[in-house]
Each structure stands twice: as C-alpha cells, then as structure tokens.
Amino acid sequence: MSALGPLATRMGDNTLILGHRLSEWCGQAPALEEDIALANTALDLIGQTQMWLGLAAEIAGEGKTADDLAMRRDVWDFRNLLLVERPNVDFAYTTTRQFLFDRWHLPMLDALSRSSEPRVAAIAAKAVKEATYHAERSAELVVALGDGTAESHDRMQAALDALWPYTGEMFIGDDIDAELASEGIAPAPESLRDGWEEAVRTFLADATLSVPDSDFAHRGGRSGARHSEHLGHLLTQMQWLQRAYPDATW
C-alpha cells in the first residue's frame, strides 16, 4: 500500500512540528496553569509523533526509526501543514493556531480510528482521546480571550486574520488522498471541510470574532513543494545535536 507511508508521515510531521512549537513556550506562558497545559499538549503530540513516524519508518524499512525521520530529514521531506509551522508570535497566535488545527485533527483522528488499516486505526484510537481534550481546551480559550477585554479581542482577531489563509490546505486532496479514501484507509480531506467550518464558526461567534471573508489558501506544506522559511529554522534547532554528533546515541 504505497499511500500508507505518506499518510503516516503527514500525520506525524504535523504533530512533531506543532509539538515542537508548543514546547518553545516552556517556562514562558502567561500563567502557571497555561504553562502546564501547553507542555501537556506538546507531550501528547510528541507521543503521537513517535507512533506515526514509527509507522512511517516501519514502512520505509532499511532499519529506519522515528528519530531518523524526525532528526535527519531536510525541509523538502517534511509533509506537515503550513499552519503548524507558523511561529508562536504571542499567546493569541499560539491559541488560534491550536484551535484551527484541533478542530481538524479531532474529526480526522475520529475517522482514522475506523480505518480499514488496523495499524492506523490503533494509533488514531489512542490519539483521539488526547485530541478531544486539546480541542475542548483551545476552543474554551478562544471563546474566553475573544470575549475578554478589548485588547484580548483585538489580539485574537489579528491572529485569526493572519492564520486563516493557512487553514484551506487541510481540505485540499491529492492523488495520495484519493488512493487512501478509495481503500477506506483515510477520509478524503474535502469531506472534513463542512464539519470543521461549522464548528469553527460556532466557537468564533461565541468569541465575538469575525470570520475573515477570504477563502484564499496557502499550500505546499503537506505536499512538501513549498514550506515557509520558518521550518528551516525550527529544524536547525531541533536537529542540531543529531547533525553535529552523527555517531552518538543518546
């Protein structure tokens, strides 16, 4: 099954890069409770990465491991959404990025937990429990900060406006997706759009935030064709030890 590897890589790269971004917050969050919650979410995502990239490595063969994939690939081999490589900027961007991702991640995992491929279904069944908590938490924060003070509202609106063009990529399928869908391994990306949009609009209305009216979508992350400049810097940091000391085990 040739599309299974790319699916596992896409799922694992999303959680790897987003988990890394969240881990950048360590010790710097606005309150202790948020610090703990961000670390907890990062931890869940890194754990999911181990499972997804573990599967991708198993399919790749040649004795590869999840760590090889995380630490030894260059930018063009990554298959994560552009959304998750966006920088943290501030707590509004970080929260909004998480919310937009979680509202896609949750139904995606839910569908994958019923995958015809048992290895995919098993990983998704485990991850969906964590994603449920992530989605609840990020939606609560979006509502509270959107409907908080004038400043928190404005910051959340600015973050939403900036990140909105990176959401469309989640729902644009390609040949790999078509193959996965036809074999019942994964849902077609387009099929998740309506549910996502309905949930997102409902929470944003509660948050008193306006949905941007542009439907322009940046793309190039999940195909690997054109990542943003930000990803290279992230990898520079994340992969440094493995690159500097290639003979070492840790």
Partner: peptide, 26 residues
C-alpha cells in the same frame, strides 16, 4: 534544552519533567 533534545523520547521525558516542576510550583 527542550527544543534541542536529541531524540523524541528524550524530548518527551524532558517535557514531562519540566511540566512536573511547574506542577510542583503550583
């Protein structure tokens, strides 16, 4: 060092540890 941890497992362990410390603070 969390963002430079050399493996996924080391990163996860360090994250869990630093998260525990925030919990201790709490």
């Amino acid at each position: 060092w969390i963002t430079r941890a050399p493996t996924l497992e080391r990163k996860a362990i360090l994250l869990a540890k630093v998260q525990d410390e925030a919990g201790h603070g709490l």
